[in-house]
Design a protein around this nucleic acid. Sequence first.
DNA 1: ATCATGACTAATG
DNA 2: CCATTAGCCATGA
Length: 87
Amino acid sequence: MNITPFQQKVYDFVQTIPKGETATYKNVAVGIGHPKAYRAVGSALNRNPFIGRVSCHRVIKSNGQIGGYVLGTNKKLELLKKESLNS
DNA sequence: ATCATGACTAATG
DNA sequence: CCATTAGCCATGA
């Protein structure tokens, strides 16, 4: 399963997010050079082949709401909470 | 090449 | 604050 450059950029950017910090899908899209591809970003993470490797849980919606998570939004929230506490 | 789908966003009522 | 509409993009069939 060859991943596309787009996904590669997304995963790379997500892994760049410092611990305890969160980025929105739009922010990621802009960061990778696709300010209008926030939709594709979500899709890429959804199809994230590195599930469990990439910190996809640090990506949330622009309105501050938790987007989704393959392992469960609650899990995502917990992880963010923990990472957000201690540095 | 075309259609349908989705972890989205912004604007409007 | 909640619901609806329109816009935009990459992916898979």
